[in-house]
Nucleic acid binder design. Structure first.
Length: 267
DNA sequence: ATGGTCGCGAGGCGA
């Protein structure tokens, strides 16, 4: 089974690319982030015409997650229980569309769009860390309940766990940029300590290996990226990981998302 | 260069 995660940065703007990607890479399950639409404007036909079932969770032009699968799609869950809400500057906090789960051929797949954090002191950073903590509590509980569970936590984690996961760690520290701070990395490490493994990095060793290149400052053209999209697998699933790669070609050319798809083959 | 580029949706926000 070939499974992928991709922050498409608007599914409507990327519909043709997504359809072509599914065919070109022969993808069985795709976890999507930043659909940036509600159900009424979701491009269902992109998936249905090609034999995929798809479940979507999105309210507006912000966030939005989905899972497409041609190997079954069962027990869809929108948000995880007690997902922390966010309300900027005292506005009424709301639960955002950042997590959707579904079972695909025996694998419990979660498509996750971790909050960005915005800046090191921003309230959005507090939100990010609380969101990750609660998600990790669930991830731990699932394994405590069934150590043999096959679980895949797929998505845009908005964290660069290693210094080599950004194009210049000194630039990030000097300018106090997020994604590389101790608390963010500790939050990511909690998932690893809970038993979840990055099944892509062993097949795509760095340095200089990224999944995201900022549109601003033309970072792709300058080869200045970040590795922030990950597939984390439970122990029982990780042992089935045979191969993985980053489809960097998908970042090229006009109309590309700022993220490249990340793929893995599971036996 | 307190810049740059996208997407949404029609001004400003989020990334």
């Amino acid at each position: 089974m070939r499974i992928a995660t991709w922050n498409v940065n608007s599914l409507r703007a990327r519909a043709d690319r997504v359809e072509e990607f599914l065919e070109r890479q022969d993808v069985d399950v795709l976890a999507i982030q930043e659909t940036k639409c509600k159900d009424e404007s979701f491009p269902w036909e992109v998936f249905e015409h090609n034999g995929y079932d798809v479940a979507h969770f999105g309210f507006s032009q912000w966030n939005g997650v989905a899972i497409a699968s041609r190997v079954g799609l069962k027990d869809v869950e929108r948000t995880f229980p007690n997902q922390p809400p966010f309300g900027k500057g005292g506005k009424d906090p709301v639960q955002e569309a950042r997590a959707i789960g579904a079972t695909c051929d025996g694998v419990r797949v979660w498509s996750l769009y971790v909050p960005n954090g915005r800046s090191r002191e921003d309230e959005h950073m507090t939100y990010k860390l609380a969101w990750l903590r609660k998600m990790r509590e669930h991830a731990s509980a699932w394994l405590a309940e069934d150590p043999q569970a096959q679980i895949l936590l797929a998505g845009d984690w908005n964290i660069a766990p290693e210094d080599e996961d950004v194009w210049d760690i000194d630039f990030f520290e000097k300018n106090r940029i997020t994604h590389v701070t101790g608390p963010e990395r500790a939050a990511f490490q909690e998932f690893v300590d809970a038993g979840y493994t990055d099944i892509v990095r062993p097949h795509t060793p760095g340095p200089g290996v990224y999944t995201f290149w900022d549109y601003t400052s033309l970072r792709f053209q300058k080869r200045q990226g970040m590795r922030i999209d990950f597939l984390l697998a439970s122990p029982a699933l990780a042992q089935h990981a045979e191969h993985a790669f980053i489809d960097k070609d998908e970042r090229r050319g006009k109309g590309a998302s700022d993220h490249a798809p990340v793929l893995a083959d599971l036996s």
